[in-house]
């Protein structure tokens, strides 16, 4: 029998930092009900943070559904699509001033995205601290759900995509047309057959969004306390269907433009 020392780089991290010099104090009896405000109470625990992710994620999914339906108006022709885009700015008029509804929606979405990411980053950091020494053999995923394991990296890719997407079709910074152009023109110019790589980029990003939702939607139900063994099949199916429909709906527009169906 021999002692052969294997040098596995990442195992040489300082293990002593793992062991605590002072043990965690034993808890006392459950305290009296907390008087802190709800958001504080919620945000205090890892479970609360997940609930924040679930709710904000839900808001973003609802937005995506609306966004997708709007996009599909491209197939009804230039007039319908541009009219729709214009209508977004006039919702609620004359009760509301011009573009107020849209601004509120943008604000809500921005807050939702920030909270979603903030929670995600906070949980990811907590996870990193919770396992400072990694396994030498990469743990085999027992649950063969690819989507589950790409939530964090997928989320970052989606964020980068959203930034691109806003610069592209909202602000027109990276669009062949200027920011002031009509929406229909911007879309058609963007996914012109010559710019096929943009289309590919969009498709990949949308598939990432789909994978994110496949796990995220199901996970939100679980986090909000609705997950039960007998409902899991249904909830998974629901999440898969919604994710698939959104992917198809979103991919349809750039692909159809690129192959020349929409001009």
């Amino acid at each position: 029998m021999s002692w052969t020392y294997q040098k596995i780089g990442h195992m040489f991290r300082n293990v002593s930092s793992v062991s605590r010099s002072t043990p965690v104090a034993a808890p006392r009896r459950p305290q009296a009900p907390s008087t802190a405000a709800l958001p504080r109470r919620l945000y205090r625990s890892s479970v609360g943070k997940k609930a924040v992710m679930a709710v904000t994620g839900g808001i973003l999914v609802l937005f995506l559904v609306g966004h997708m339906l709007g996009n599909l108006k491209v197939f009804l022709g230039r007039a319908d699509f541009d009219h729709y885009a214009h209508w977004l700015r006039t919702i609620g008029e004359p009760a509301l001033p011009h573009r107020v509804f849209l601004t509120i929606m943008e604000a809500v979405l921005t807050v939702a995205v920030i909270l979603h990411m903030w929670s995600a980053v906070s949980l990811a950091r907590r996870a990193r601290q919770a396992r400072p020494v990694r396994y030498a053999v990469r743990p085999k995923a027992q649950e063969h759900r690819y989507a589950t394991h790409v939530m964090r990296y997928g989320g970052i890719i989606i964020l980068l995509f959203v930034i691109w997407h806003l610069l592209d079709l909202t602000f027109g910074v990276v669009n062949p047309k200027s920011g002031g152009a009509e929406p229909y023109d911007k879309v058609v110019a963007d996914f012109d057959p010559s710019r096929w790589y943009i289309t590919v980029f969009y498709v990949i990003a949308v598939v990432m969004v789909g994978l994110h939702l496949k796990h995220g939607l199901w996970s939100a139900f679980q986090t909000l306390g609705w997950g039960r063994q007998r409902r899991y099949r249904g909830l998974h199916l629901f999440a898969d269907v919604v994710a698939a429909l959104l992917v198809i709906g979103f991919v349809a527009v750039p692909v159809m433009v690129t192959i020349g169906v929409v001009k």
């Binding site: 965690v24 808890p27 009896r29 459950p30 305290q31 009900p33 907390s34 205090r44 625990s45 890892s46 479970v47 943070k49 997940k50 949980l123 907590r126 996870a127 601290q129 919770a130 396992r131 743990p139 995923a141 027992q142 649950e143 759900r145 589950t148 394991h149 939530m151 796990h215 199901w218 996970s219 679980q222 986090t223």
Partner: peptide, 23 residues
Amino acid sequence: GRVTAMVDQMDAEGFGGCTNTGE
């Protein structure tokens, strides 16, 4: 009271948060 206290303690011990991976 139980669930709040136990989750607080779980967090205080330095365990990670659940992301519903099912592992």
